[in-house]
Design a protein around this nucleic acid. Structure first.
Length: 488
RNA sequence: GGCCCCGUCGUCUAGCGGCCUAGGACUCUGGCUUCUCAAGUCAGCUACGAGGGUUCGAAUCCCUUCGGGGCUACCA
């Protein structure tokens, strides 16, 4: 059975068919492909499966490339960078597939099939009724010259269909072990459409062989198409030792055990990017779906992932995607950011939310404000709301909090605070805290949470905010006091 | 229906015959800390789908069964 004992260079490809934004499942596959290539010191190939041009657009291809780059999954061969086995877009390799298809026809591995869609459907219908294995019935396998002439005169255009021999195919899946498919359940399959365009089954096998791919790590949904790929290798005259090794990755599923989809939670990586998830958090989380480094370890950097990743530790059972866990990991990764990086990554979210205009004074305040909220956010998208009070021109207390400070007692409290705050020498958080504690806690005998809550609302506009005294220091004496005064 | 894959806490997982009265993480609940929210910290809840074997011993091996998923296209 295909099992090459002789070491050959590791070459792994990620070959999506970008019919939309790359989604969580795609990326998990890409991540494992990439990690395996990097772990082994092999080559990571990025190939676009765009034989179905109606569904794959240039924008999607570009978006896929951008997403991979954003995540840090850079490729050694593929679009933009080229490579010795290009082109890497299947739409640019059509002549190659045509040549092979012609050869398969000439060598008797494949044949022209003239059956119409209606006829094939009728066959399937009959098979369903008769409760037998569905699939092509071999009608055109051995057509006479007369028969062919008759079909041609009807104007029928044939597809190229691969002939599956009797017997079975067994291969060793790196994750699932030995898998066997009886050819009774692998019907003759189409390689080339009537319009001359190649199908996935042809293109994928031809490319993997010609690009010298050594390991095919791909989704579990392709498991049952493997015998067909192997048949194409055989028709190409590839020796068993040169077949790629297969590893079929378990699915990433949505909450209710269904395949991940829009209904189940967001699947597009772009969506996560816009919501302030860090690429390293997404990769770390996705790496844990169907794989684990063992030893109760969960936190891994991209570098550690490439060091630790092995196919042996990949699971065979599907995993469910859990947004809560992603958020937790994202929070960890945000806290692990250096102040400089946190600033750099937060900035676009602040400006997009129109909280910042980008002036030098704002940036100076921001530089001091970010450290006090770094451990308070789970995503970058939460940053603007948390710091808005520092930068708004027209300050307003949020409606749900306003009622808590409009009673007489609160007004009195705010009034005392306002008066005593005048005496603060250096407007620092220490100075502010000292004065406020003395006036409100010691002298008025209030509970800290009651007293400071009122001031918090008055100054930041919300009952939830960064630490109060630091916030007031950053806001400055003038603005802090004027906000208090306006509510007395 | 047929073929194939899969089955440990709610979720992701550790476990690869004795170290398991099953460990970690997320979630949830309660406590501590505390100017709010977080963070941190302590504790708690909850799992080997079921039934048969094999074995001195099974979450780990085998069989059956049930359950979930994939494929069954001139999609990938």
């Amino acid at each position: 059975m295909p099992n090459n004992s002789v070491a050959r260079p590791v070459r792994v490809r990620f070959a999506p068919s970008p019919t939309g934004d790359l989604h969580v499942g795609n990326i998990r596959t890409a991540l494992f492909d990439w990690a395996y290539a990097r772990h082994t010191g092999g080559t990571f190939i990025f190939r676009i499966e765009d034989t179905d041009k109606d569904r794959v657009t240039d924008e999607y291809i570009q978006a896929a490339a951008d997403t991979l780059k954003w995540l840090g999954l850079t490729w050694d061969e593929g679009p933009e960078v080229g490579g010795p086995y290009g082109p890497y877009l299947q739409s640019e390799r059509l002549d190659i597939y045509a040549t092979w298809a012609a050869k398969f026809l000439a060598d008797g591995f494949a044949y022209h099939c003239y059956c119409s869609a209606d006829e094939l459907e009728a066959v399937r219908e009959a098979q369903r009724k008769a409760n037998v294995a569905p699939g092509y019935n071999g009608h055109c396998r051995d057509l006479s010259a007369d028969h062919i002439a008759a079909y041609k005169s009807e104007g029928r255009l044939p597809v190229v269909r691969m002939r599956m021999p009797d017997g079975s195919t067994t291969f060793t899946d790196l994750i699932r072990g030995e898998v066997t498919f009886d050819h009774n359940f692998v019907p003759d399959f189409v390689l080339v459409r009537a319009n001359g365009s190649p199908l996935y089954t042809l293109a994928v096998a031809v490319d993997d062989v010609m690009m010298k791919v050594s390991h095919v790590l791909r989704g579990e949904d392709l498991l049952s198409s493997t015998p067909r790929q192997i048949r194409v290798y055989q028709a190409m005259g590839v020796s068993e030792a040169d077949y790629p090794l297969f590893a079929h990755l378990p699915f990433v599923m949505g909450q209710d055990n269904a395949k991940l989809s829009k209904r189940n939670g967001e699947v597009s990586i772009a969506w996560y990017r816009e919501r302030g998830f860090l690429p390293e958090a997404i990769c770390n989380y996705l790496a844990l779906l169907g794989w684990s480094p063992g030893e109760d370890r969960e936190d891994v950097t991209m570098k550690e992932l490439t060091e630790l990743f092995t196919v042996e530790r990949v699971h065979s059972s599907p995993a469910r995607f859990d947004m809560k866990k992603l958020e937790a990991i994202n929070g960890d990764k945000i806290r692990a950011l250096s102040p400089e990086l946190f600033l750099e990554k937060s900035l676009p979210f602040l400006t997009d939310a129109k909280v910042l205009t980008g002036s030098a004074e704002e940036l100076a305040v921001l530089g001091k404000a970010l450290p006090i909220i770094q451990e308070r956010v789970a995503t970058l998208a939460e940053v603007p709301a948390m710091l808005k009070f520092l930068f708004v021109k027209e300050f307003e207390v949020e409606e749900s909090s306003l009622s808590k400070i409009t009673d007489e007692e609160s007004k009195k409290l705010l009034s005392v605070a306002y008066d005593r705050l005048q005496s603060v020498g250096d407007w620092t958080h220490e100075g502010i805290e000292e004065v406020l504690r003395k006036a409100l806690i010691e002298e008025l005998g209030l509970k800290p949470r009651i007293a400071f809550s009122a001031i918090r609302i008055a100054v930041t506009g919300s009952h939830i905010s960064p630490p109060l005294f630091e916030s007031m220091e950053l806001l400055g004496r003038e603005i802090s006091l004027s906000r208090l005064k306006s509510l007395i």
